[in-house]
Design a protein around this nucleic acid. Structure first.
Lengths: 154, 154
DNA sequence: TAAGATTAGGGGTATATGCCCCTATATGTC
DNA sequence: GACATATAGGGGCATATACCCCTAATCTTA
């Protein structure tokens, strides 16, 4: 801080509060996460966890690195998020052929869990879709996907 | 789990992976947060922290409860998020007239910090806006605001 | 093939976030 | 004014998330 700046005024503050993409996106993520979490409570899974189980279901046996890339998440954060799933026996984590790698696999129990969760997810999804309308949902997706692609490194 | 369900198949899994509003929103929030965080690094503030400082700047002295409502966040989560700001002397937390309340106020240092951060925020914001286009940004806002309003309790 | 470069993960540290339950304080009612 | 109720926060617990740095394993190249 070299030159003395004119202090942030109320108008600037309001502009930031109203238009900040980071704020609005995080806020929405909080709300939506709570909503899905609530819907998933009967099967004792958080939405974040279902997302991971489902991603593993899609990818099959997959390294941490590749899974992290698929869900666009920091590797070490992902590794930590996998721990509760491992502890509950929903996934298995083993050394890969390449000994540097850890390979993550869905267990039988994990597949069952995802299977139970699916209809609940569908219901949550349907409600949100209902509220936003088909069109609203499409534009939301387009915007958010755009954001991911454009701010993502590498 | 009473009746035996048919196991989640690949198509269902892919549908969930592609269309889950929770997933896509969280993913976008992660990316955008990283982007803003990086831009704000020179002033040693995280985007979440700037959002809070700015909200306090707008509201003036404000109780935890009211601030939480303003940013649509869990009270206790918010209280915790305020701690690092308090520790750095950017805000002050005092008992209110109503002794149940804690009143949060921006300090001189906090205002300075927000002031320094503002141009960096503007730059980040401009870049995102640039990428999405004015229109894209507007629809994004409309959708995400809609989501917040509709999933919010009370 | 041995030395250097690259890659995959893990651990440390810090923050962000929510739920539940407990305590302190107010408020409202008889 | 005493008691029931409602409200504001705090603490415990668990998870989510990122960055940095370290180690182990693999790959590249002289």
């Amino acid at each position: 801080m070299s030159a003395k700046l004119k202090a942030l005024d109320q108008n600037q503050a309001i502009e930031m509060g109203k238009s900040c993409v980071c704020f609005i996106t995080r806020r929405a993520a909080r709300c939506i996460t709570q909503f899905y979490d609530e819907m998933l409570r009967p099967v004792d899974l958080r939405s974040t966890q279902l997302i991971l189980l489902n991603s593993i279901r899609i990818l099959g046996s997959v390294s941490i690195k590749r899974l992290a890339k698929a869900v666009v998440m920091d590797r070490s954060a992902l590794a930590r998020n996998l721990k509760p799933l491992d502890k509950q026996g929903l996934i298995r984590i083993e050394r890969g052929e390449d000994l540097r790698e850890r390979v993550v696999t869905l267990t039988k129990l994990g597949l069952e869990k995802a299977t139970e969760a699916f209809p609940l997810w569908e219901k949550a999804q349907a409600e949100v879709q209902n509220k936003l309308g088909r069109e609203g949902l499409d534009t939301l997706f387009a915007s958010l996907s755009g954001v991911v692609l454009l701010t993502r490194k590498k």
